[in-house]
Design a protein around this nucleic acid. Structure first.
Lengths: 200, 200
DNA sequence: ATCCTAACGCAACACAAGTTGCGATAAGTC
DNA sequence: GACTTATCGCAACTTGTGTTGCGTTAGGAT
């Protein structure tokens, strides 16, 4: 299950090509067929890399997800900066909604959540991913506090959590439909709670 | 994957015993080993029912979960009624937290969420389960509105969602630790948002 | 240019998951 | 009590997943 993450003794050349091919194949397979249908044989066939190699370097399906997740957490998130906390939070929650309703990215994002349910390595990778996301999105709140829109002592990450949590809750827990209106309501509720000083 | 849910042509006698034995074995296996280790062979061996029978009636692991979930959604939820919305919501969120941190019930509850990620039948069953939960917990809010604690026009289910969502978010999405303090903060934030009229 | 060996490809294997055909058992009906 | 058939137990089979041993290829160092 340990991934020789490019820091192995031979990071360049063929090994790098193999890794890139497998990563790309994993994302393609996830986008097309979803997590439930993701198999090692599938990504091996698509990537042109042999099945045994994938098992050896990634350990299995969960390892593939963890690797793709690590890659995803490295790329930055386009955090909005409109000048008002209300607009910023709405844009943020809408970004989350579209990230899961998009026919291409949606299945991939959902796969990350699903994989973490079954494998501890994927769970750790997911925790890192969201820690990065919270850190990036916290700037929305710190700016709002600096402008005086929100009370001093407000916990930035907690506002972000309150804003996005209802969306994830509907998507993966209560299994209710999600759209832009849901995003706006979640953003407004988080903002109202923060203004009341309930998120300090 | 279709479960002959006691409404089959022979609901009594042996069939009923088989179903009860399999259901009990499923819950025991989940509590002990968790969802990742739940196998049809395992519940078959524990229940004394043959593997083939389980496959025929439940279809597989996901069917077992869906059946157990259906059973769980029938039994009522001890909704608190302390006289104040603040206390009620706090008790509710703490109930959710203990439901997942309890070493016996926790793995079972988590298994329901995990199963819905992979199987559509389990997803439908989970949606029904939470619809029932929302309906029951909504009374906390309707009572609070009747008492004048919360503004008229407040959406009861939306308050419940806002209160419990951060807990599920931490447990299954951002993978952050959860305790009673988290429960209290989530309840307070939902209450503040509702008082501000952001959950109408 | 040559050597060393990490990393890969390949085939065969081991194991668990799920299926099928058939005979045996016991509900439900008369 | 006798009959019909839904349901279950059983064993053999098929399929998919993951493993192992070994030969081959190609980085990286000298």
């Amino acid at each position: 299950m340990t991934i020789t993450d490019g820091l192995g003794r031979r990071p360049g050349g063929r090994s790098a090509r193999v890794r890139a091919a497998v990563r790309a194949a994993t994302l393609s397979e996830l986008a097309e067929k979803g997590y439930a249908a993701l198999t090692v044989d599938g990504v091996a066939a698509r990537s042109g890399v042999h099945k045994t190699t994938v098992y050896r370097r990634w350990g299995g399906v969960e390892g593939l997800i963890a690797d793709a997740l690590e890659m995803a957490s490295e790329e930055p998130w386009p955090i909005p900066d409109t000048g008002s906390a209300e607009e910023d939070l709405r844009a943020l929650t809408r970004l989350v909604v579209t990230g899961f309703t998009d026919p291409d990215d949606g299945p991939v994002s959902a796969a990350f959540i699903a994989a973490a349910m079954q494998d501890s390595a994927a769970a750790v990778a997911l925790a890192g991913f969201f820690a990065s996301r919270h850190e990036q999105a916290a700037r929305i709140v710190t700016r709002a506090v600096a402008r005086g829109e929100l009370p001093a002592g407000t916990d930035p990450a907690e506002v972000v959590r309150a804003a996005v949590a209802p969306i994830y809750y509907r998507l993966f827990v209560s299994r209710e439909p999600v759209d832009a209106a849901v995003a706006d309501r979640a953003a407004n509720a988080a903002l109202a709670a923060a203004r009341a000083g309930a998120l300090g």
